[in-house]
Simulated scan of single mutants.
Amino acid sequence: MDGTQGFLPGAAAVRLLMHRRHGVGTDRLLVFTGSEEVPSFAAFTPEGEQQELTAADYAVLSRSKEDYELRLTNGFVERLRAVDAERLVCAG
């Protein structure tokens, strides 16, 4: 996921995005957070927790020779924004 443009989901949105029934169903989310000059990535668990990249994450990134694109509908992106906003209101 490119975290340098557009919407960068928070913890609640990451949980929804990674959910097996209501999202895309993934075990790990790698977000590009750098630039072409200085590439960097953040990794998230299905619980929405940010972690350091593991050796397995680096292996996936090094093997990937293609870009994979997943297009989310505007309605789903609005749901992601809504769950993050709800979490911010509850935490505030």
Rank of each mutant, 00 (worst) to 15 (best):
L17K: 09
H19E: 15
P46G: 09
P39K: 11
D57G: 00
E37T: 14
A42P: 00
Q51V: 14
R28M: 11
D27N: 15
T26I: 15
D57V: 02
L29S: 01
A12Y: 03
L29Q: 09
E47T: 13
A42K: 13
A55W: 12
S35F: 07
P39V: 03
R21N: 10
L30V: 12
S40A: 11
F44Q: 05
H22T: 09
S35E: 07
F41R: 01
L17D: 10
L30H: 05
R21G: 08
E36H: 10
A13R: 10
L16T: 05
D27C: 03
A11N: 13
L16I: 07
V31H: 04
R28Q: 13
Q50H: 02
D57T: 04
A12C: 07
A11G: 08
G25Y: 11
S35W: 03
Q51F: 02
T26P: 00
V38H: 14
R20H: 14
Q50K: 09
L53S: 10
E52S: 14
T54A: 08
Q50W: 00
H22E: 15
T26A: 15
L16P: 00
F32E: 10
L53C: 03
L30F: 11
V24G: 01
L17P: 04
S40W: 02
A13N: 02
R21W: 05
M18N: 10
A55M: 08
F32S: 07
P46A: 05
L16V: 10
Q51K: 13
S40D: 11
P39H: 02
E47K: 14
R15Y: 01
T45G: 02
E47V: 00
A11Q: 14
E36K: 15
S35Q: 11
E49S: 13
D27W: 09
L17N: 08
V31I: 15
R15I: 04
G34W: 01
D57R: 05
T54E: 07
A42H: 04
D27I: 10
E37V: 08
E49C: 02
G23M: 07
